[in-house]
Design a protein around this nucleic acid. Sequence first.
DNA 1: AACCACTACAACCGCAGATCT
DNA 2: GAGATCTGCGGTTGTAGTGGT
Length: 528
Amino acid sequence: MDLPQEIFADAGNLKKGPWTSTEDAILVSYVNKHGEGNWNSVQKHSGLYRCGKSCRLRWANHLRPNLKKGAFTPDEERTIVELHSKLGNKWARMAAQLPGRTDNEIKNYWNTRIKRRMRAGLPVYPMDIPKSAASLSQFYFKQEDDGRKMGTRADSESEFASSDRQSHQLSSLHGGHQARSFYSIMSITDLPLTSVVANQGSAGVGKGIVNPSLPHIKRVQHSSPYGGTDGSHGSVSFSQLSDGSSKTFQPELCTEASRTCTHNSTRRPMMSVFADGLDPYTVPYDGTCGLISMPFGSFTPNASSKLELPLSQSAESADSAGTPRSAITSPLMSLSRSSQLLSEDDSFGSNASDFLDALMKEAHPTEGFDQVRTDLIDQLLALTAGNISPDVAALLVGTDKTRWAENMNPMATIEAHASVYGEGMSQNCCPGSLKEPGTQCHLLSGEVLSLSASQVAGPRVEDIPAEIPLGGCTDEDFLTLLDFASADAVPEWYTPAEYFSAGGIPCSSLVDVIDNVPSPEVAVDLDY
DNA sequence: AACCACTACAACCGCAGATCT
DNA sequence: GAGATCTGCGGTTGTAGTGGT
């Protein structure tokens, strides 16, 4: 074949860069003659100076027949969003359900769409599309390649292999469809700082939970009999049960360009700072711990932990008293230092959990079982600010030493429960918008992490399985308890036995029970 | 007209699983 | 069974086009 010089690379190297029409013609001709596959032989037999991968890509994305060209139709866009909500960044699988579209096309579309919506401060998913953790995690870990990969662990299902690992891990935290149990939780300590969530507890002790939710989406709590926001957006399912059904706690997404939510009864202020890997809205926090503890009233500016916020959420904005809120520091930071160590690529090695491993190397999972269990119960009670009874806490933490030994990590239990209650109580908004000068912020990591570091005997974090059976109750039991705990009108706490014998109490959401805890009036400005 | 920011798209790269030798 | 090769996937980068200043 008499080939034009343009298709040749210089000095025998394979050509890179844009394909020419001549090259396309050669490739098409070759594939028509020999069929797809065996791409590495294309170069040998066709004279194209392109590697096999390049040929395959060019064919698959541009030359193969039946490719649809042009912009996505609204239907296709809708399908993509729905598929992404279910599959996460599984472009090839998405493409399989969109005839004529390529994975690359869908990926490009999605990535640009994400950027656009993030800039606009819009949620990535429309309100009527429930999102799974599998999809959420794709944002959460977007820049995890900076050396802070989460710990590895065996995937329990083949479909979670390789690149699914990160999403799978977050699924465990956030309750995606891939995780059978939403409170089968990855250790919080292994997460980079992605959110800082604070609220004010009824007893002056707040709690928060890492919230790897969407960037720049403010979760506000739904309207309730106790007042709250005027938001009326679709609920967000953040848990999913083993049968595939979802457990919705109805926090809502605030999408208006600007909104002020005044909480005049029971709502407690929550603060969420999304960070780490969400360019361009990265928060270079000093450390990468998942959670930070902060006592109320100590919202101290600190240049080293400046927050970069999008658009109007300027980190330099000041509150009504003129106090800059450009940063957050914590006198309790030392408590969370362990989490930072766990997350940093530091002297403990590339695997952050080595630190935990080192701390626990001498211990046995069931050693000091009773004391640890008591401590966990106390922690759970503290984290939920008494919103559950000691009986319930005890049940949740569990009594079965064997199961603890099997689970290898009793922390998983409390972290899971903490996340549940924390999430239920969450009301996230940007930190610069808390109007209350003395807003008290308190996050739970210090407690949890200090507990994990000093008291809990367990395995390395990466050894935590995809699903961690709760120490004391089954998944169903726990969800039932959640229902119980969130019942609208529970005059007093039943014991678990009474509850179960009663066959359960209907509820609307866990949030409601939180509403029973009085809190001062707080105005939260969601300045979108 | 020049510059800049942004978007959309094409292509490359690294990795991992599958298959072949 | 082990190594080599192929293939596919997802992340990232490069670039052309476009619109605003």
